[in-house]
């Protein structure tokens, strides 16, 4: 498969699946203000996914639109990392997932500004402004909960510990990553890893949380091997277009 297409599709899938997860909070946030904050982030990510899918579809040259890429692929064709498909569970899990991903997303887009692919660099520039705020939001909540009450500290630590095994994939290159890093269109993840490690260590330390000791890291999402979670997400997200293909508002 064309690695350039595969790479851009994955960036879009990461954004789309996380947007869908955050959208589940709509109407269920702990308070109205945070409900809106999370759905704002969700819509930012959805906007990024749309730009990336549109571009991926053009590169592929088979006439697939952003909607066709989002609604008419099955789980094994999705390239998102496993982290973003993990369930919301509670506020602490949602924040931990967001913080881990935002940190990666921030450094990744920052590096992508220098992509040889000008279209991709432009998408990175627009997205980086949004992601900078996402990272500020999720870091702030990790600090509040970690350095909050005894209960909030416990819940935040549990979420950090449970989701830790999905973080390795963010900065571990697969064949696609190696190819796009080599030709200068993508990002060298090995350069992102120390930045991710340092930022996460900084925030967790300030939040009085323990950094989990490295253990077994899950992987496979980038190559289409997903957890059982993704099927349920797609069932809900794709239901309408699968039932009534081409349906519009």
């Amino acid at each position: 498969m064309n690695t350039h297409f595969d790479y851009i599709l994955r960036l879009g899938d990461n954004a789309l699946i996380l947007a869908q997860r955050l959208g589940e909070w709509c109407g269920h946030g702990p308070v109205l203000e945070q409900d809106i904050a999370l759905t704002n982030i969700s819509l930012d990510l959805l906007g990024q996914a749309r730009m990336l899918f549109t571009y991926a579809g053009e590169l592929e040259g088979r006439g697939r639109t952003e909607d066709q890429l989002a609604y008419f692929r099955d789980a094994h064709e999705f390239r998102n990392v496993l982290l973003v498909e993990q369930p919301n569970t509670d506020w602490a899990y949602t924040i931990a997932r967001q913080f881990f991903f935002d940190t990666y997303n921030y450094y990744h887009y920052q590096a992508l500004l220098k992509s040889r692919d000008e279209r991709l660099a432009a998408i990175a520039e627009k997205s980086l402004k949004e992601v900078t705020y996402h990272l500020r939001f999720s870091s702030e909540w990790v600090l509040r909960l970690g350095d909050g009450t005894e209960t909030s500290h416990q819940k935040m630590q549990a979420a950090i510990d449970d989701l830790w095994m999905y973080t390795g994939e963010l900065t571990t290159p697969n064949a696609t990553d190696l190819a796009v890093a080599a030709d200068g269109t993508g990002v060298d993840l090995l350069k992102i890893k120390p930045l991710w490690d340092a930022k996460v260590a900084d925030v967790l330390q300030e939040a009085t949380l323990q950094i989990p000791t490295a253990g077994w890291m899950q992987s496979g999402g980038k190559d289409g091997r997903h957890t059982e979670q993704l099927g349920f997400i797609l069932a809900e997200m794709q239901h309408l277009q699968r039932t009534y293909p081409g349906l519009e508002w």
């Binding site: 308070v31 109205l32 203000e33 945070q34 809106i36 904050a37 704002n40 500020r136 702030e140 509040r144």
Partner: peptide, 20 residues
Amino acid sequence: SLHAADAQMAIENARDVYCR
């Protein structure tokens, strides 16, 4: 108006609620 735990959260909430 809005609810927030402290001033910083209030400003961030205001950004999300009133400056969309």
